[in-house]
């Protein structure tokens, strides 16, 4: 989706919201949920904190929507608020930096799988998680958002991470290169062909 299509679509949603169309609000949530969740996860130490920041972000939008007249500003407002609320919460709860994927895998281990499928999946996932966890904090934040919100524009990602738009492409390439190298180093030739995780 191009920037123009995105903003035109948001303009229509805002006009529907203005006349009380609740479905428009759900569409607005659906359209932005990926990048907002990516932003709060990028700046939160765990899922519980991310969920709190996520809820605060949408509650704040609901109360402030009538002040946002520019459709192009809604997405930027959301990701900026998501980042700010996540950072403020991290300070308030004195959390450490966001955890890598390794910690996340332990946090959300799926006990419903068979031992065999679980082992295969876990092996691939663990290799990728290990490689991801070895990346710089900034690379983890960037790749996390890009992975969970592949339709997000560089503008949105830059706003969510406080980065200049022009630096995102080169940074993304460097981070992906670093991820490939770490996966190769961990003995994962399938890494560069695609990992079945």
């Amino acid at each position: 989706m191009t920037e123009r299509e995105r903003s035109c679509g948001t303009a229509v949603l805002l006009s529907r919201l203005a006349v009380g169309d609740e479905r428009a609000w759900r569409d607005l949530v659906d359209r932005n949920s990926g990048v907002v969740w990516g932003a709060v996860r990028a700046y939160s130490a765990n899922r519980a904190d991310a969920e709190d920041a996520w809820q605060a972000t949408w509650l704040l939008l609901a109360e402030n929507l009538h002040r946002l007249r520019d459709p192009e500003g809604v997405s930027a407002w959301l990701v900026t608020t998501a980042r700010r609320e996540s950072m403020r919460l991290a300070r308030a709860r004195r959390r450490e930096s966001p955890s890598g994927l390794a910690g996340l895998l332990a946090e959300t281990a799926d006990s419903s799988e068979t031992p065999e499928s679980s082992a295969m999946r876990s092996l691939s996932a663990a290799r990728m998680a290990q490689a991801f966890a070895q990346l710089s904090h900034r690379c983890q934040q960037l790749l996390r958002i890009m992975a969970v919100a592949p339709d997000a524009s560089y503008e949105q990602i830059g706003t969510a991470l406080g980065m200049a738009r022009g630096s995102i492409g080169p940074k993304k390439q460097r981070c992906l290169r670093a991820l490939r190298l770490r996966m190769l180093a961990s003995g994962s030739p399938e890494a560069v062909e695609g990992v079945a995780v």
């Binding site: 991801f132 992975a147 969970v148 592949p150 992906l176």
Partner: peptide
Amino acid sequence: ELRSLGRLFRRTD
């Protein structure tokens, strides 16, 4: 790699 990460995040997070 991003697609793989996306699948991983969607499954685990």
